[in-house]
């Protein structure tokens, strides 16, 4: 495999008592889209901010193109879209883009930036007068205007309507096809599914799963079974396919890998069983399972 263009090596970051990153190893190779997934507070943004040189690791290290991320030579090859960035309200969109372009040795052509980010009609407007979604699109334009080799996008599509989100996905695919590597943090699993070559799942400061989207999905191919049955919770708990059982009044809830096998046993154990429901765990639910195995069954993803 080629040398990584950005990496965290056993990175540790603490904020007082809280360990935000607990020995994270992460590599980004050129031309790939890596999605960082994880619940709030899992350490996604901290990982990104170490790679950007905004914070120093307390242990381990972060490098960009083999350099310290705080070096200007490294940062001239990246583009950034952070979660919270109040840009200058009184500047026009066009001015913000031209200013950011001036930081880069070889920026993209202005017209191309506006086209890729889909903000042509916003150019003459003051940033402060834009809606939340329009602001995100402008921030995206700033991220890509330097024609970067790596693009860091922290929750880029939050606040976008479906049309704008789809358009941004399309642009991201175009950029990756042109050889740009992307680090994307997101809450939206369908976003990772639609875009990512590789996914890394962070929870409590550690990477708990990493691989292709299919590999991650296979990881979490659980089914949920729900029925009204008198079978005591202890019975299915002993079956090998079952990962979780819970009783809620007369309802029995089971999470299992091989739903068919469990159903056969369950129906055999209780001929009176009724109101049977079997659902494939949505990606969102499955995701909760890997990030929080103990409390999985309680957390119904909305």
């Amino acid at each position: 495999m080629s040398t990584p263009i950005a990496q965290l090596q056993h990175a540790v970051k603490r904020y007082g008592q809280v360990t935000a990153l607990d020995g994270v190893d992460l590599q980004l190779h050129s031309g790939e889209l890596l999605a960082l997934l994880g619940p709030n507070g899992a350490g996604k943004s901290t990982a990104v901010s170490l790679l950007l040189g905004l914070q120093r690791a307390d242990g381990g290290c972060a490098t960009l193109f083999g350099l310290d991320p705080q070096w200007l030579e490294a940062r001239r090859r990246i583009g950034v879209m952070l979660q919270e960035a109040a840009l200058q309200q009184s500047l026009r969109v066009e001015e913000l883009i031209r200013l950011t372009m001036s930081y880069y040795p070889r920026p993209r052509a202005f017209g191309e930036v506006a086209l890729l980010a889909g903000i042509e009609e916003l150019l003459p407007r003051r940033y402060g007068k834009l809606s939340g979604g329009q602001k995100r699109r402008v921030q995206f334009a700033l991220a890509i205007c330097g024609d970067p080799e790596i693009l860091f996008l922290d929750e880029p599509t939050v606040g976008l309507d479906i049309g704008a989100r789809t358009a941004m996905w399309k642009t991201l695919r175009t950029l990756v096809a042109d050889g740009c590597a992307i680090v994307l943090t997101t809450h939206y699993l369908e976003e990772a599914e639609a875009l990512a070559d590789r996914v890394a799942v962070l929870a409590r400061g550690k990477i708990i799963a990493e691989g292709s989207v299919d590999a991650i999905r296979a990881h979490v191919a659980q089914r949920r079974i729900r029925c009204i049955s008198a079978v005591p919770a202890e019975t299915p708990r002993g079956w090998p396919e079952v990962s979780h059982v819970e009783r809620e009044g007369e309802h029995l809830r089971i999470v299992a890998k091989d739903a068919e096998a469990v159903l056969r046993r369950l129906l055999a154990a209780d001929p009176e069983l009724r109101d049977l429901e079997v659902r494939r765990a949505g990606l969102a639910e499955a995701f909760v399972e890997i990030t929080n195995p103990s409390g999985a069954a309680q957390k119904e993803a909305a």
């Binding site: 040189g53 905004l54 200007l72 952070l82 919270e84 960035a85 109040a86 840009l87 200058q88």
Partner: peptide
């Protein structure tokens, strides 16, 4: 204000000449 609102952070991440 710019520190609080994250503009300074963004500028530090961007290759703005120091």
């Amino acid at each position: 204000l710019e520190r609080e609102h994250g503009l300074l952070t963004l500028k530090r991440a961007l290759p703005m000449p120091p």
